[in-house]
């Protein structure tokens, strides 16, 4: 008996049945691709609100990376003009569109935490109080943005490196710097120096000096590959400052003193003919 259902209804039913079958498959694929980073997560509501109409249409049209690149190029333009707020906005939109793109976050922390404060230092006409307020605002913002980046990319070494630089160079916070180097330990691609730097800055963090010293001494005893001048010098200074019992001191000469001796006994260059003037 021929079906009494009209053709359009049959079509809608087939589409719906296909939708029901593919929906769980697509959801599962979406999760897998999001985890692998193959698919970029949906931008948040605030990103959509801040985006221009054409950028939003572009994003909807599957041109996310292009729109993000547009914002990135825009951020460089604002960087050239030292328009830090506009630079922040463009980069932030780029991160909304490509939250797993590490370089956007690194750029954001770098511009906000290093370039913008450096620019402030050159502004002679700006009142000192205003400079201080803005400086504090920029550097704090850089750290917050870095933390937001780490939420998306928890294993990122590059973001941590950039945040450590802000703590070290601009905020002058050895505790924060040490924290960043500590977090890098064990991550893929972490620099060799991270372990030493963690000890150096921890030993400068108020209340954590002894902890920092212990870390550095442990590194020293790990082997001669760690017997670097900076590490030795740091331990020598700390063992005196922290009143470490002498039997526990490392028996090394001060590398700086050695350097001075070396400089003093440096052999003069022979003149042509092999004549040496003492």
């Amino acid at each position: 008996m021929p079906s009494k259902l009209p053709n359009w209804l049959k079509i809608v039913l087939i589409l719906a049945a296909f939708g029901l079958v593919r929906s769980p498959v697509e959801n599962s694929l979406r999760r897998k691709m999001n985890t692998a980073g193959m698919l970029l997560p949906t931008p948040g509501h605030s990103a959509m609100a801040q985006m221009g109409q054409s950028a939003l249409m572009g994003m909807l049209g599957g041109l996310r990376t292009l729109v993000a690149t547009g914002y990135l190029l825009d951020s460089y333009r604002h960087f050239d003009n030292a328009d830090w707020d506009a630079n922040r906005k463009s980069l932030l939109l780029a991160t909304y569109l490509e939250p797993t793109e590490e370089s956007h976050w690194v750029d954001l922390v770098w511009h906000r935490g290093i370039n913008a404060p450096a620019w402030l230092e050159t502004r002679a006409r700006l009142p000192e109080i205003e400079k201080r307020i803005l400086y504090h605002e920029y550097t704090r913002d850089a750290i917050e943005l870095g933390e937001a980046g780490l939420k998306n990319l928890p294993k990122s070494v590059e973001i941590r490196k950039q945040m450590a630089e802000v703590y070290r160079e601009k905020i002058k916070d050895p505790c924060g710097t040490a924290k960043m180097y500590k977090e890098m330990l064990g991550l893929e691609g972490a620099p060799m120096y991270a372990n030493r730097f963690y000890g150096y800055f921890l030993s400068e963090c108020p209340g954590k000096e002894k902890e920092g010293y212990d870390h550095l001494v442990n590194l020293y005893w790990e082997g001669s590959h760690n017997h670097l001048p900076t590490l030795i010098k740091k331990i020598l200074v700390l063992q005196e400052e922290l009143d470490i019992p002498v039997p526990l001191w490392i028996r090394e000469k001060d590398p700086d003193a050695q350097k001075q001796i070396n400089r003093r006994i440096k052999k003069p260059k022979p003149l042509p003919g092999g004549i040496v003037i003492p």
Binding site: G19, L20, M33, A36, M38, L39, G62, E98, T100
Partner: peptide, 30 residues
């Protein structure tokens, strides 16, 4: 969701281009 194809799902070239790891099983499924 039932009637219109999910084209966003097919935009996985974006992630690969920016360096995401390719999961062969997912590509086959796609």
């Amino acid at each position: 969701k039932l009637l219109i194809p999910d084209f966003q799902l097919f935009s996985f070239s974006e992630g690969i281009v920016i360096g995401a790891e390719v999961v062969p099983r997912v590509v086959w499924s796609m």
